[in-house]
Simulated scan of single mutants.
Amino acid sequence: MAEWYTATSDEAQQRLVGAWPDAPIENLEVCGFLLETARVQVLAYAPETGMLAGAVELALVQFGLADRLADVLVLLDADPTDPPINYVYAQLQQATNLWNAGRVSGGGDAGVEQFTFTPRPLDKTIKQIIRPVHGGPRVR
């Protein structure tokens, strides 16, 4: 299943650069700070039942199958403490936002040709990745 991004080994760094080519791996300490801070922020915003077991349990409860959680986790070959894929993706996006926020000059310039932007940590797009808005039941 999904694993949090880190920069703690060569393999983890290769995985990170594969997903985020501009990751600041030339300074592993800063890169680690960004990834860990992003992970903490994602978990702080996530619902309490955010780990895989909690998400699966919520789905099973909806169908009256809460007692089948262990069976489903075995079928998924999943560790119940693995983070959901959307949390890992949100961590990557948040780390990117944090890195970009730190690179903006005092005048607000970032990039080329005077392109400017203001990154917003844990912006609404990342919040939607962590806590998707679900519509009501479908009526046929």
Rank of each mutant, 00 (worst) to 15 (best):
E11L: 11
A38I: 04
A7T: 04
V74S: 02
A95F: 02
Q13T: 10
H134M: 06
G106E: 15
Y87T: 03
D82F: 12
A23K: 10
F63A: 14
T96P: 00
E3L: 13
R15L: 15
Q62S: 11
D79C: 05
Q13N: 12
F117K: 11
K127C: 07
L28W: 07
L122K: 01
A110L: 14
L16H: 03
L35H: 02
A78I: 10
V133G: 02
Q14W: 11
D71H: 09
L28Q: 13
G50W: 14
P137D: 00
N97R: 06
P84L: 13
L35E: 05
T6W: 05
A90F: 06
L43Q: 08
G111P: 05
R68Y: 03
G64P: 06
D109C: 10
W20F: 13
Q91E: 09
P80V: 08
L60K: 15
F117C: 08
F117Q: 13
D82V: 03
V112R: 15
D77K: 14
V17H: 11
T118I: 12
H134E: 02
T116F: 08
G18P: 05
Y45L: 08
L76M: 15
A110H: 11
P83E: 09
E26A: 10
V112L: 14
P84V: 11
G18K: 11
E57N: 10
A55I: 09
E36W: 00
R103P: 07
T118D: 12
A44R: 15
A38Q: 07
Q114T: 03
R39N: 01
V88P: 04
A12V: 15
C31R: 10
A59I: 13
L69A: 04
T81F: 06
V56D: 04
L43E: 12
G102I: 06
V139A: 08
V40G: 03
L28I: 13
V42F: 09
T6G: 04
I126A: 01
T116L: 08
V61C: 02
T49E: 15
A53Y: 00
L98H: 05
